[in-house]
Simulated assay, not measured.
Amino acid sequence: MADIAAPVVGPSAAARLRGMVGPVVFVVVLLALWKLAVTAFAVPPYIMPPPEAAWTAFLKEADKIGYALFFTLRNAAAGLLVAFVLAIVLAAIFVSSRKVTHAVLPIVIGLRTAPVLAIAPILIMIFGRGIGTAIAVVVIVSFFPIMVNAMKGFSSTRKNALELMHVLGAGWFKTFIKVRLPFALPFIFAGLRSAATSAILSAMLAEWLSGAPGLGTLILDASSYRKTGLLWAAVIVSMIMAYTIYWLTTAVEKRLTAWRN
């Protein structure tokens, strides 16, 4: 029995280890290049501190960074959730009705092409200097790639599956839930991966512009007070969180689309 079970567990664990080697090697090489560049070109610490200075600042200001990270993740998660629901609803409507697509899609595209920096003062006046502005910025930045990929996914449903649902007497909603949505999952997750990584950046941008608590404000304050170690520590934390969100999104996609294999 043990001999039969061993080959099943082994490749899975080995695959996980192989998946971890790449990111670890990348981080080590990046830190080595960072240290080499700072040393070789004698970069002043007020411009770019060495990696150990950023690590020291992280340990010293861990509470402050964790507090700011909480607000940024909260804003990004809330905005991404709203963007996801809005994108799926709009994509479903656009696929179902060409008249609505021709009437509403140009407005959606126009809203997406508006520079966030240009409309940020308007958003601050509407939503105030808090979570409302951060959510609005994240939604504007994140919903479009999800919507475009969802539209492509909903349109890629096999015709024989749609015809089968029609023969069985299924309505639009049941056909959407049972057929269109499962077929569109790979496309939706492709857009979600792109949107999820940019959600952190857009939340930080909103914090930077509005002064709300978060990593964006922390980085701005650290820059103003010339705390370059803290600044770089916060930047690295934001990069790690963006990669973590991307990895989690990929893992969820594999779990939900395993049936396709």
Rank of each mutant, 00 (worst) to 15 (best):
P44Q: 13
P45Y: 04
T39S: 14
P51I: 09
M48A: 10
P45M: 09
P44C: 14
T56N: 13
T39H: 10
I65H: 00
A57C: 05
K35F: 15
K35V: 05
K64E: 14
F58P: 02
K60Q: 12
L59H: 07
K35M: 13
D63K: 06
D63T: 10
A37T: 14
L36M: 15
A53Q: 07
L31N: 03
E61D: 15
E61V: 01
A42W: 08
L36V: 15
F58A: 07
K60Y: 04
A40D: 08
V27I: 13
T39R: 13
A54H: 03
A68F: 00
L31Q: 02
F26Y: 03
L59E: 13
L30G: 03
A32G: 06
T39W: 12
P44I: 12
L30Y: 07
A53H: 05
A32M: 11
P23I: 02
A40L: 11
V28G: 03
T56R: 08
V28P: 01
G22V: 11
L31T: 02
Y46K: 08
V24W: 07
R74K: 12
L59T: 09
V38S: 05
M48Q: 04
P49F: 06
V28T: 04
A57Y: 02
A42C: 03
F41D: 07
F70W: 15
F58Y: 10
V29L: 15
L33Y: 07
T56L: 12
T56H: 10
E61F: 09
M48L: 15
L33V: 08
L33E: 06
D63S: 11
V38T: 10
A68S: 06
G66E: 04
K64Y: 06
